[in-house]
């Protein structure tokens, strides 16, 4: 205060609340289900960079484009030389590095900023529970991955119907691959988001997810190579299952009788059920880890 101003003491304390036009919301409140749906949709859009900066859109859309490439090439091949270049059940297995990069690049986005800026209590002050938050994030990632696999598959199928190859269309294989892509989506989403949720740093999250994929794929590759070189083919067949993509492929082979997409096939007999149990175990483990993680994060 400047010295020129004497403080004229008011006779009574005066307090004023100004009307700044704030209005109460008096409409209906939509509740937990809608909050869940809204968070899921928001997260799904975010995974593809919608509603984010242009730079955030580059990665998901480039990867989406790469996923579409084989479908485009295959349709062209069917039209020109009347042969299928890519089968439906092999699509996701062949494109596994792309799916892995997508998972690694995008799952930290879903969870890391909320952890880093500690906004979780803000979500939980809405009619949404910890489990809802986790479920919404998982649903968004699973939906994104499903789209990433199913859209090229469906494009390819429509292409096949239009080109009208000799012989019946491969509808059985298409629907088998579509069903398997649900398994891929759920398994990858759970594992990726669970791994990413352990660090609030996006960069480290990306590194962790890709490291686990590369680790699994390299261990599997080394073991298969070694076992085959000493002619222990059954052990090699089991070693394939360490790679999550071949794990799901083994389930696909067991459920739908499609040809295996590795060299040498999967363990016969109990191999299929064991692979399915493995998939379920990974999903259960990831979800449990996520719930534990967020119980802790929500209270901090």
């Amino acid at each position: 205060m400047s010295e020129a101003v004497p403080a004229p003491a008011p006779a009574q304390p005066i307090g004023v609340i100004h009307d700044i036009g704030y209005r109460h919301y008096e409409g209906a409140r939509l509740g937990r289900g809608h909050a869940f749906a809204a968070l899921t949709l928001h997260s799904l859009r975010g995974v593809f960079g919608l509603g984010r900066t242009a730079r955030a859109k580059i990665m998901p859309f480039v990867l989406f484009g790469v996923m579409m490439l084989p479908a485009a090439v295959s349709i062209a091949a069917m039209a020109l030389i009347q042969r299928q270049a890519m089968t439906y059940p092999s699509y996701a297995v062949v494109m596994q590095p792309v799916l892995a990069v997508f998972l690694a690049a995008q799952s930290p986005y879903l969870v890391a900023p909320d952890l880093r800026f500690r906004v979780l209590p803000l979500y939980l002050s809405r009619p949404i529970a910890t489990a809802d938050y986790v479920a919404a994030k998982l649903a968004a990632m699973a939906a994104a991955l499903f789209l990433l696999i199913a859209v090229p598959l469906t494009t390819l199928y429509i292409g096949e119907l239009l080109v009208d190859l000799p012989g019946p269309p491969h509808s059985g294989e298409y629907f088998a691959a579509l069903a398997t892509s649900v398994v891929f989506a759920v398994l990858l989403a759970c594992a990726g988001v669970a791994l990413a949720s352990f660090t609030p740093r996006r960069g480290l999250g990306v590194a962790a997810v890709i490291a686990v994929y590369l680790l699994a794929s390299a261990i599997s590759g080394v073991l298969v190579g070694v076992f085959e070189s000493i002619s222990r083919d059954e052990a090699a067949a089991w070693a394939w299952l360490i790679n999550p993509f071949f794990l799901v492929d083994a389930v696909q082979v067991w459920l739908f009788g499609t040809p295996p997409n590795n060299d040498g096939g999967y363990p016969p007999g109990v191999g299929g059920p064991v692979a399915a149990a493995g998939v379920l175990a990974i999903i259960a483990l990831s979800v449990a880890a996520l719930l534990l993680r967020y119980r802790k994060a929500a209270s901090s």
Partner: peptide, 29 residues
Amino acid sequence: AVGSTDERAVVTLMQVYAIGTMLPLLGLI
């Protein structure tokens, strides 16, 4: 443990895992 200590198996381990996977990941981190 599985007695696979021939040169070919070890080269596979080194090429695929040590140089092909571990090194770039560690470099990245």
